[in-house]
């Protein structure tokens, strides 16, 4: 039996790298990060917060540098600065007449630049390249633990609050009208966003993490009309890209984060073109053969029950 499997083409391609501990580690860590990012990405794309994700990911840089300098876990520094940036954005937006995109742009580049200054001034063994683009192949044990903690907290929070968060994305006014505390939901979503970025820092780096936060959800959104389906599609495409991307980076000796994101983007392009309902081809086809719009409001009436 095992001889049959071993004879399959590509079997070596899959098994051979698994003899290296660092690669096994890289594969499951990036798969885990892919899962966390994919789940959150459904909420982020529906809420329209991609730019907020971008802001947080850039704003963590000074936190990482300071954490290394103070010899505390990088995740703590990154989280404080990432979440701090969102608080700063919220504060500035509420106190000035500026529009949100301008505030976000100012805050995140300011934080990022501050990080750059620190990196070049504080003596440390931080590789800026690794912060920017990730280094999952060289991930250390403590880093894995931090990634796991941040990721697990994110998953648990989303699991427990998923209905409220979805309502908050869909119709915050209704949430308010039924007496729910929308500021709590706002900060909960920001909190898990910051945590996810911290979790993904080692795998994807701050530049590429945006793709992992936006693309899986977008693929799901193009392929489905139901949130639970969207979630499954998002997770599957993200985890697949993370695992395959890590393999490809080993076999072709290319950047891991880069190949993960390239794969994800390819999946997105396929979904964009071939999605059965919202794909470009399907829409083109519908426009050429216009179907009469279903007009059942003529037949349908509001049923008035005389109770």
């Amino acid at each position: 039996m095992s001889a049959v499997i071993a004879a399959l083409p590509g079997w070596d391609w899959i098994v051979e790298p698994l003899q290296y501990g660092f690669l096994v580690r890289a594969i499951w860590v990036s798969a885990f990060v892919g899962l966390v990012c994919a789940v959150l990405s459904c909420y982020i794309t529906l809420k329209g917060w991609s730019l907020m994700g971008d802001a947080i990911s850039h704003a963590v840089v000074p936190g990482v540098v300071i954490a290394y300098a103070l010899n505390i876990p990088f995740a703590i520094g990154a989280f404080v600065f990432g979440f701090g940036a969102t608080v700063a954005i919220g504060y500035i937006k509420s106190r000035t007449r500026l529009k949100e995109d301008a505030v976000i742009g100012i805050v995140f580049t300011g934080f990022f630049a501050f990080g750059l200054v620190l990196v070049t001034k504080i003596p440390s063994n931080i590789d800026l390249f690794h912060i920017l683009f990730g280094n999952v192949l060289g991930i250390s044990q403590p880093d894995i633990i931090q990634t796991l903690i941040a990721g697990v907290i994110t998953l648990v929070v989303i699991l427990v609050r998923r209905k409220d968060l979805l309502l908050f994305c869909f119709d915050p006014n209704h949430a308010k009208a039924i007496g729910l505390r929308t500021p709590v939901m706002y900060y909960t979503l920001l909190l898990v966003l910051a945590l996810t970025i911290v979790a993904a820092l080692q795998t994807a780096g701050i530049i590429l993490v945006i793709s992992m936060l936006v693309t899986p959800g977008s693929i799901g959104y193009l392929l489905s009309d139901r949130f639970d389906h969207m979630l499954i599609i998002s997770v599957v495409s993200s985890v697949f890209s993370c695992v395959m991307g890590t393999y490809l980076s080993y076999h072709f000796d290319v950047s891991t984060g880069g190949s993960i994101v390239v794969l994800l983007t390819l999946l997105f392009v396929m979904a964009m073109i071939f999605a059965p309902k919202y794909g470009i081809l399907a829409q083109e086809f519908r426009q050429r053969s216009p179907q009469p719009l279903e007009e059942d409001s003529q037949k349908q009436q509001v049923v008035v029950d005389q109770a």
Binding site: C169, I178, L180, R226, F227, H229
Partner: peptide
């Protein structure tokens, strides 16, 4: 365009009566 069904939307009217997990 939000991926919710009519049933989901109407159920949101009941959230205020449900427990924390809705």
């Amino acid at each position: 365009n939000f991926p919710v069904s009519v049933f989901d939307v109407v159920m949101m009217g009941r959230y205020g009566y449900m427990n924390l997990l809705r």
